[in-house]
Design a protein around this nucleic acid. Structure first.
Lengths: 344, 344
DNA sequence: TTGTATGCGTTATCAC
DNA sequence: GTGATAACGCATACAA
């Protein structure tokens, strides 16, 4: 049996208005009426009809998503799909979702886009906070305008992150390490390669590196070296790097750019080096199926945005609480289970 | 800008009723009025407010979930959690979800429970179709009473399954095999162990076995043997089985009962045998962390029911289509990424 | 063929 | 303090 306010009012012998005042503790209720209503409420399990509540409010909500341009970095491409799906899905509920793209290699573009979004005064912003200092500033500005900010993809270290959807990057590095250990022999050298990561968003990959190293620190007998490089330098310098580290038998690429390493390895027909990297980019999936890449770790960027948006929509429409921190599972992808993640 | 029927009526210079008739193609609209309304509809992007639509209908929906008793088999325990969450979540939308448990070792109990559910005449049933023949019969009865049936966990082979949420079991077996290959040496013997699986639901594990074998058939140089056993026989017979297969270095358990094998291996201090099995039961997770179990494959039973229920609710409330077949990703779980799946 | 009135459950407003 | 009443957007029954 589903009770409505009208039911309760009849049972308590008061009017709907009084019941409403009791339910929402708005005061202006006599002790006697309060008691009568509470007596009924204690008997039954009243759950407000969220559809009706939301319909009554009937506001149009505006949510902006700020993320890197997927033309600059294909990692972000699935996010765009997630946003498109959310736009379609939530439009029917009066929620208007609008994406804004910045150039991930250009802090100014990040600032500019956020300034534009700020002027639009949306109800909420879902943000990929790539640049640390600038994000702090812009978040403060959003707060001043009472704009709710959620973050996805990477946390802002140090400050107590709220409304975050993403993964535990430290753990992600550890998982990569544990997989690496399974497929290489002892006493080997392993390289951690950071591609195109300047100091701006270095925190992001540093966490993975820390996690990766922590795993092997507990075991010893492995030699871990880090190589920071630019994508365009790989062709010229990777062979030297490999020759310098003669026992090198595993490479961990801390981002989705792992395909650049795989491409090199394939072209040079280097067969003894195992490769682990991130994300289901088309090229990465190809090298995974080829066997050049042994494992990919799935950061599920699409689900990250979609979930982040869902939280905001549920908050606006149904007063649901936004989880302070939503950590997605860290999926291990092999050539064999790959397609179970790409279907649908 | 969000348009309502009222807006459209004003723009077209007709009444709301006429717009409604056009939108729903109910006829009884003059050519002239039709044209005026269509002119407006072509200009704008009208999306009906699903909250209002659903509120208007205000029916109470009743969904029954029929699944094995988790006291008889802990595999089903997470399903119960998923159901509880769904009950809580969807009650506010007027959907009443009710679980019904049967004894997975007793076909009669399956029949009896379904009979009871049938008499309740719910709007839909979400069903774990463990017994093939009996499920076909009961599904027909549900159909006669216009009760929508969705299935989860395992498909009914042969018939064209509709409204199914689960995993591709054949592929699941292949994935287990590919992991096994990574961790054992060549020319080894591998055992596929089916525990407590009688002919009733054998189809279920047979698919996994087929997939597992298909993977190794493509490679050769491995010796695969199958052992069907009862849980209570493991202590008495497993050691013999191991001694008979001297090169045995890997065991694939086709169900969540893998912990029974792990327990044996731990007690007998057998260290050279790798173990792969299914599902995040408490005991399984323990042996995974211990290193006795090397990989678990996550069938995500909780998500299966929850998703199955979500599809039904969205269908009733918002007229969304129920996916004919929703295959969940097949997650590979190691000691390292385990906790990213259990948090939340 | 058309338009209007009513109600779904909740909430806000306004007389009394 | 209290209880009517209107409104959110949609759907429908009914009157014109």
């Amino acid at each position: 049996m589903k009770y409505t306010i009208k039911n309760i009012a009849e049972l308590a012998g008061v009017s709907k208005g009084t019941v409403d005042r009791v339910l929402h503790e708005r005061g202006k209720v006599s002790a006697k009426a309060l008691e009568k209503v509470n007596a009924v409420l204690n008997e039954i399990d009243y759950k407000p009809n969220l559809l009706a509540r939301s319909l009554k409010k009937t506001r149009n909500y505006h949510i902006c998503v700020v993320l890197p341009d997927f033309n600059k970095d294909p990692y972000w491409s699935p996010c765009n799909e997630g946003i498109e799906e959310a736009i379609e899905e939530f439009a029917s509920f009066g929620v208007f979702i609008e994406p804004f793209f910045f150039n991930p290699n250009d802090i100014k573009s990040f600032i500019k886009v956020n300034k534009k979004v700020l002027e639009l005064l949306p109800n909420a912003v879902l943000l990929a906070p790539l640049f640390y200092k600038e994000t702090i500033e812009i978040i403060n500005k959003y707060a001043l305008s009472n704009i709710i900010v959620s973050k996805f993809n990477n946390q802002l270290e140090i400050n107590n992150t709220q409304n975050f959807v993403g993964q535990d990057l430290y753990k992600s590095g550890r998982i990569a390490a544990s997989l690496m250990k399974e497929i290489i022999s002892k006493n080997a050298t392993i390289a951690i390669i950071n591609i195109d990561e300047d100091s701006n968003n270095a925190i992001y990959v540093q966490e993975k590196e820390k996690g990766f190293r922590s795993f092997f620190n507990e075991i010893e007998s492995y030699n871990i070296v880090t190589w920071n490089c630019k994508q365009q330098d790989i062709d010229a310098k990777l062979l030297d790097f490999i020759n310098e580290n003669i026992a090198l038998s595993g490479i961990f690429v801390t981002t989705s750019k792992v395909y650049t390493i795989a491409e090199f390895i394939k072209n040079k027909k280097i067969e003894h080096i195992k490769v682990i990297g991130y994300d289901l980019l088309d090229e990465n999936m190809l090298y995974l199926k080829n066997g050049i890449i042994n494992f990919l770790i799935h950061q599920n960027p699409k689900k990250q945005v979609y979930l982040g948006l869902t939280y905001l929509v549920d908050y606006f429409l149904f007063d649901k609480e936004i989880p302070a921190k939503s950590l997605l599972p860290i999926d291990i992808i092999t050539a064999e289970n790959l397609e179970t993640y790409t279907e649908n």
